[in-house]
């Protein structure tokens, strides 16, 4: 809930700063909107890009992948950010409106599982997660996983999830449950990754998930096994780059048609080593291994 507002303020600041520095010359303003997962790095890109060129300003706002994609379909945005791929029906809708979305993978994000910092569990498998989160799954209590989190006498697993049209929600559901199974009802559906982290920090019984970049030092992140008995991989930027972490996902930017002019230049800069290092600093995995020191 905080991010879209913050994004708006930043966007406004960027525009104001741009105007102040630029006098009469005409300036391109790129409208960039979408994923809450990407919003922090999108703001950082916009701020840095303002230092690179005074001719282009980038106005960033969040609201979620769905917001960005609907804006792309309606043609009210130049670049849509999304933490999931556009669906076929969304692509059709956009084309029907005369906007042909072009997809760019701008980085990768490890989706971390969050536990309260006192929770002793350090190792989970995708099957265990499916039994906790999936409809028909039988894991309801921490004792079924052989742990007794301190501060959680009720033993109940409090599932924290996201609102049902967030890109993170879709990706996590499909990654651990496949595309034919739904989440169990009764999860606490938070409106933003930061809210998930805040709640898990304060709730000893809780389990949650979100992009690795939102992790804080007051939270514990178990390593994840793709299969029972397989290697347990920690969620880090490095394991997201090399693909060994089982729940990492590409992050997308979409443009309406082949980008030209200022939008083209901006995207090239985002995908350049400079842009990719900014992404790396924000806790996401760049598209390729690169040296940012």
């Amino acid at each position: 809930m905080i991010h879209p507002i913050r994004a708006g303020v930043f966007a406004l600041a960027a525009v104001v700063a741009g105007c102040a520095g630029n006098g009469e010359a005409t300036r391109d303003v790129i409208q960039n909107k979408g994923s809450d997962t990407l919003v922090n790095v999108a703001q950082a890109w916009a701020e840095e890009y303002a230092k690179v060129t005074a001719e282009t300003a980038v106005a960033v706002s969040g609201g979620g992948s769905g917001t960005g994609i609907s804006a792309m379909i309606n043609g009210t945005v130049d670049i849509a950010n999304s933490s999931r791929r556009m669906t076929d029906s969304e692509l059709e809708q956009a084309r029907a409106n005369g906007h042909d979305p072009i997809e760019y993978i701008v980085g990768f994000d490890a989706l971390a599982v969050f536990l309260h910092e006192d929770n002793p569990l350090g190792d989970m498998s995708l099957d265990q997660l499916a039994d906790i989160y999936g409809e028909g799954g039988t894991t309801e209590r921490w004792s079924q996983l052989d742990v007794a989190p301190p501060g959680c006498p009720s033993d109940k697993i409090v599932r924290v999830s996201r609102q049902n049209n967030s890109g993170t929600y879709f990706y996590y559901r499909d990654a651990i449950l496949g595309d034919q199974r739904d989440f169990k009802l009764g999860s606490l559906d938070m409106h933003g990754s930061k809210d998930v982290v805040d709640l898990v920090e304060n709730t000893p019984c809780a389990i949650g998930y979100s992009g690795l970049a939102y992790a804080t030092e007051h939270i514990s992140m178990p390593c994840i096994r793709a299969s029972e008995g397989g290697d347990c991989v920690d969620p880090t930027v490095a394991t997201a780059i090399d693909g060994s972490y089982p729940i990492s996902r590409p992050l997308f930017m979409y443009t309406a048609g082949e980008p030209e002019g200022a939008i083209r230049e901006y995207l090239d800069w985002v995908l350049s080593d400079v842009g990719q290092c900014i992404l790396h600093q924000k806790g996401y995995a760049p598209r390729a291994v690169l040296d940012c020191s």
Partner: peptide, 18 residues
């Protein structure tokens, strides 16, 4: 924990395709 009718509309409408 529960969910209210109003809260459902507020949380979901913004990201739902018109």
């Amino acid at each position: 924990a529960v969910r209210a009718l109003t809260a459902t509309i507020a949380a979901e409408l913004g990201e739902t395709a018109e």
